[in-house]
Design a protein around this nucleic acid. Structure first.
Lengths: 212, 212
DNA sequence: GGATAATTTGACCGGTTGGTAAACATTACA
DNA sequence: TGTAATGTTTACCAACCGGTCAAATTATCC
């Protein structure tokens, strides 16, 4: 009897929902740590607590797993930027953007590393998504430019402003080991995110000449 | 006839010097792009223009190549921070630190990515080096703290200041594809490093309340 | 030029890895 | 409850990959 692949069926079973969830969770663990090529299906299977062929019943190839993960992650990854509101005032908007990005670095470091891995590799399979990203950033850059023109913040290049916020916040997820190694066991507890938030808010408020 | 491994001989031949150079150059290409596990000896051999056993004549294992690369890169990678001078004044020191780090991101992006790959993977084989790093950063953090106490720069956490400079500058090497994708082909020429430098200098001068 | 050491390569090996085949087990549903 | 669809596993394969071996080639030095 021909066995219909889970991926092909139109309706998704309860079991499919559950197992795909478990698999993606395990895959996130392994992919974010070892990168695409470094990760093995066996590893993912072990973390997921099921056999390798069983994984391949839900995702036909290793690449399909990776793709599914990337799609899911990218979607939520840009949410903080989407919320960046033109109507709001710069102080609140920028502060809360930094906060949200730092929270994501703290709460979803694996997602951040998965993304970083992908970009490091030259982003072979997210070219279209990068195009969406460009449009979104263009849009938000306009907002920032408007703030500059209105004299609400100092003159600055909006693109490099956004880059710098991405870099400084994601740094705490992607370079976690380095940060911990430098801060030492004493200062690298959960408090380091508070310290980072305080520093960055101050840096950007003064740096962009935003009066609080 | 027992063939002495190149790595074992005390004296290094002219050929050894040359070939090891060619190999490390190729290895940097491949490792920085695909990560340690993603890179294959065959790939490196092809880029280096020699046969796989020939590579393994100079470096006994893939890991030996990687180790040699890391050692070489790490040494020069921290030079800009070492030059950070306590005697100098904050404006000059911080500005030129940013400049140097940006230049390295521009001129040695592969080295930056190699390092990023290593950290992302949990820095399995540079634990000792991370300890040296910590000492160096501790030292420089003292310098910054002294500047703060002397009222030369605004109050701030010196560690997170250093992290933020690392993050913002290395971002242009590690996330190059993303930066290019966002800026588009028009604005992503060589000029983007000048734009970045201008933005960052302004951000840090104002952000740290350094009067120019 | 010849002996010796250094260098290079084609053929090969064992282990790993992505993926498959097919039998077996379980669930959904009439 | 029976049965067809769905889910799971064991055994396996072919390709790949890190590394070895021995033979061939080239450089070095007297």
């Amino acid at each position: 009897m021909a066995i219909p692949r889970a991926a092909k069926t139109q309706r998704r079973t309860r079991i499919q929902e559950e197992k795909e969830e478990v698999i993606l969770e395990a895959a996130l663990d392994v992919f974010s740590m070892h990168g695409f090529k470094g990760a093995t299906i066996d590893q993912i299977a072990e973390v997921a607590g099921m056999s390798k062929p069983n994984l391949l019943y839900y995702f036909r190839t290793k690449e399909a797993m990776h793709r599914a993960l990337i799609d899911r992650v990218l979607d939520t990854w840009l949410d903080p930027l989407r919320e960046f509101d033109a109507e709001g005032n710069p102080e609140v908007e920028i502060k809360s953007y930094i906060r949200r990005k730092l929270e994501m670095a703290r709460d979803f470091p694996r997602e951040s590393r998965l993304f970083a891995n992908e970009i490091l590799r030259g982003a072979p399979l997210i070219v279209e998504e990068l195009d969406d990203l460009r449009k979104l950033v263009d849009e938000k850059a306009e907002v920032i430019r408007a703030w500059v023109k209105a004299g609400k913040i100092g003159r600055c290049d909006p693109y490099h402003l956004i880059f710098s916020i991405w870099a400084t916040t994601q740094h705490y997820a992607d370079f976690d080991v380095q940060v911990k190694a430098v801060l030492g066991p004493t200062r690298s507890g959960d408090g380091r995110f508070e310290d980072a938030a305080r520093f960055l808010e101050q840096l950007y408020m003064n740096g962009l000449q935003i009066r609080s």
